[in-house]
């Protein structure tokens, strides 16, 4: 590699980085972002609460589950074990929010 050549070529190349706040990078389909909970699909089997490795899921009743997103490590196990796909993952990755809003989105 010749650094002089590389430097001149770079003048005519597009930037490799993204212009972040203006042009967001498209995340891929499998990306696990903020949890989305669908209360209508929920059958109240409690599998998500039992399978959470760190206890971020709290079951109250059928259709009402608290997800502590401050604690969640997005391993995806709750979505895997859910028999009715009531738990899915959005592609949202900007997750800095006030602490009060650390709950899953309802879809």
């Amino acid at each position: 590699m010749n650094f002089g050549e590389e430097a001149i070529l770079n003048l005519f190349r597009k930037p490799f980085t993204d212009k972040y706040p203006f042009g967001k990078k498209k995340v891929l389909d499998r990306f696990r972002g903020w949890i989305v909970y669908h209360p209508k699909k929920c059958i109240g089997c409690k599998l998500c609460e039992k399978n959470c490795p760190i206890g971020a899921v709290k079951f109250h009743k059928k259709g009402k589950i608290d997800f502590d997103m401050g604690l969640c490590m997005l391993c995806g196990q709750c979505g895997d074990v859910c028999p009715t796909q009531a738990i899915t993952y959005s592609t949202e990755f900007e997750n800095a929010k006030p602490k009060k809003k650390f709950t899953a989105k309802t879809g």
């Binding site: 490799f16 891929l28 499998r30 997005l74 391993c75 995806g76």
Partner: peptide, 22 residues
């Protein structure tokens, strides 16, 4: 590190995570 980004893209496509793959 520019080259590393290409590897992370493949990892994200396969596993859904760039750092923690699960």
């Amino acid at each position: 590190w520019r080259e590393r980004e290409r590897v992370l893209d493949i990892l994200e496509a396969i596993t859904g995570g760039r750092v923690h793959h699960n």
